[in-house]
Design a protein around this nucleic acid. Sequence first.
DNA 1: TATACGGCCTTGTATATACAAGTTGGTCAC
DNA 2: GTGACCAACTTGTATATACAAGGCCGTATA
Lengths: 226, 226
Amino acid sequence: MIKRYIRAQIDNYLWPTNFQVPSENQLAQKFAVSRMTARRALSELTDEGLLARTQGRGTFVAEPVTAGSLLEVRNIADEISAEGHSYSNRILQLAQISASAKVSRALGLIDGAAVYYSVVVHLDNALPIQWEERYTNPALAPKYLEQNFSTQTPNAYLSRVAPLTGVETTVEAISVGIDLAQALEIEPGSACLQIWRRTISHSDTASFARLVHPGNRYRLGAQLEF
Amino acid sequence: MIKRYIRAQIDNYLWPTNFQVPSENQLAQKFAVSRMTARRALSELTDEGLLARTQGRGTFVAEPVTAGSLLEVRNIADEISAEGHSYSNRILQLAQISASAKVSRALGLIDGAAVYYSVVVHLDNALPIQWEERYTNPALAPKYLEQNFSTQTPNAYLSRVAPLTGVETTVEAISVGIDLAQALEIEPGSACLQIWRRTISHSDTASFARLVHPGNRYRLGAQLEF
DNA sequence: TATACGGCCTTGTATATACAAGTTGGTCAC
DNA sequence: GTGACCAACTTGTATATACAAGGCCGTATA
């Protein structure tokens, strides 16, 4: 409830960037809940990157992430539409399977828990542009997705998954600048670099890093598997 | 305290995979804290992927992530040492700067907050293999790092950052399998694919996905910037 | 004018308590 | 034997309360 309220205020531009959000006590009183409940709502929105808080000062609306940001989970359907192209998709597979160790760990489930597994190809002007394999926690799955899995009639696969939040690191091929090329001892503009963006959250430390690899010198050990 | 205890039990193989961790009430009694405090410790370890919990059943030790996993935050120094190579690094820059919008958002700080900024090149047998730009929340910085920034004598840059946890998505160049190549309409073994691994956490949904792009058809809009 | 202090606000942390929701396993009646 | 039911556990959620820690600002004092 509180989260939806705050989201609406921000989405409707009523609370601009750096706007000071009502304090925990004020929100608690306004919504007739305890301060700890209001606090948890603010904390979750902070974890999502919507708010930022400082002890002693208050809670503020965080800087919005611009399109193409590497922290934002990108919605390919929106991006394709935004460029004026036609978006479509092909559902290759829908199944309810028991999660492997890595998947269950990623979703916070115990090993072997039942999860939704889907394989979808996204098309940009009828040209395949993205292959998506997704494992979804059934307890947290959107309703339309649940219907798809129960009826096995995947007519309406939606790429959009509500307000998308999460942490994502990405890769891109860039032309190398001088300083970076010197540091890595490579020819400017030659190598295909791997760039990772990483957010570490831990009770003992928190950092946000960018890592660049010369593609020909570094290779992940894992092959195409989760 | 509780977290350290559980970590130790798991690290020393006293609690194997799928071992049922003591319940919240038992931990609270053992450490003479309230149940909510014990619960918070368990929740944080669950968020880190160390534990998995199910309502009504209990809390269990999660499947360990193998080396090279794409969810584990990789420590390049360990990987180089593990291969028998010599690891070293060059510190190019150490500074305390005010965070940009994206950085502050990633770290949960307000815009313009002071953060540590470091640029380090990691070397494998004296050959540069990784360029690292890192923004660190000062309030959560390790002590050795804090000393580096205060004294400006960066003699001991440690690549290791305590037990590394976090979410990371990675990229790799792979040879394309038949089914994936058919789906994307590309020649097997030809294209350099971009592979993203993504964990979405949100109060309304949670999923773990793998996304594969043909490198020549998809390009991130953002250039080399945070 | 400049500084120090204190009051008042904020977020951060911990506690005790209560009940809801889900799983497990035993007991009892049939 | 089999099914229904219940008690005893687990985690999930919410509340009220208390105090610590840090920022802000006005006031008193030198």
